[in-house]
Design a protein around this nucleic acid. Structure first.
Lengths: 173, 173
DNA sequence: CACCGCATGTAACGTGTTACATGATTCA
DNA sequence: TGAATCATGTAACACGTTACATGCGGTG
């Protein structure tokens, strides 16, 4: 729901048109998650379908502005007041992958861990570099959120390795 | 792709039928991500469509076994050898939400941060409790991965608060 | 018998995402 | 003039997810 709710939140601030929404989104979140323009329009259609926004007539030079409705404003307010994902975290591919690797024959868990740690460390380096290139405060916070997550991932990988070295294959429940 | 690849990996180990796949998946990853049985069958259809698995005839008592193909085995091997997500991390709703909150008028970022921290701390407590209830090693690792991630999220929220207290509204670029 | 768990499946929907087509405007 | 950018939109698809229908077998 990230895209949908983001666009809704931006429209709660002011009426905007499609291209503007894409630009605003990327200006605020940085270049980590580029937003395909097409998706903005499909999402706007769906928001309209759900009665959360309304297209207002063509204002001036060929720009089709969208306006938030009362229901939309309520949904946005609700989004701001409630925390993200109290329960039901999205499936984590890496966690699943390792849970399977650990319980599977013919898969070298140690290698999987090593490859992943190397990749994540590379990601952290890239993030650190792109952090220096940020201009907006919000953009920097986004990059740092990814850094914190990557760092935690590395720690977890280390933890896995340590646990597995203590409980080698054969001793496992 | 988590579900698709997981089922493929399980079928790389041995031919299995739908219900068995659901059971195996949940036995190994725990109760965090329950897998709707229906999804197993739709996923099996899509894997068949893509030529990665094949239904073998009804073996014995009403069980429809699926078997991995050569292409499927190659895909599974590829999955094991490559790291997850080198670039292109999935959109993080919380990070996006805060990036918008910081740049938006009429949104009380401090409250958003506080609500989120409380929710995440509650999640951590629940995870810690469910960690004690794990029997399988792999299951425990999954729960711990969520714990590490939640812990990092709290640290990031603290970081955001600290950054925002230094750069109050009005001084922002 | 009725109920429950096992087992297979289907239809429908939701979001995310891309590829493509189409024009207008700007600028070298 | 031609290329690039702005701007709108559509068609198609992928995956995830749920709700529902169906049948079989055991058990109270």
């Amino acid at each position: 729901m990230s895209v949908k709710l983001s666009l809704l939140a931006l429209l709660a601030e002011a009426p905007r048109y499609g291209y503007e929404l894409k630009a605003e989104f990327e200006r605020r979140t940085g270049e980590v998650w580029p937003l395909n323009v097409g998706q903005v329009y499909t999402t706007l259609d769906r928001l309209t379908r759900d009665g959360l926004v309304e297209p207002t007539g063509d204002d001036g030079g060929g720009h089709l502005y969208y306006c938030i409705t009362d229901a939309g404003r309520a949904a946005a307010t609700q989004w701001w007041s409630a925390p993200v994902e109290p329960a039901a975290p999205p499936r984590d591919e890496l966690a699943i992958k390792l849970a399977l690797a650990v319980t599977m024959h013919g898969v070298d868990v140690t290698t999987v861990l090593a490859v992943q740690r190397a990749a994540t460390l590379r990601t952290m380096q890239a993030l650190t570099a792109s952090k220096r290139a940020t201009s907006e405060l919000s953009e920097r916070l986004v990059v740092e959120s990814l850094l914190y997550a990557a760092e935690a991932q590395v720690r977890w990988l280390d933890h896995c390795e340590q646990v597995l070295s203590v409980t080698p294959i054969g001793d496992r429940p």
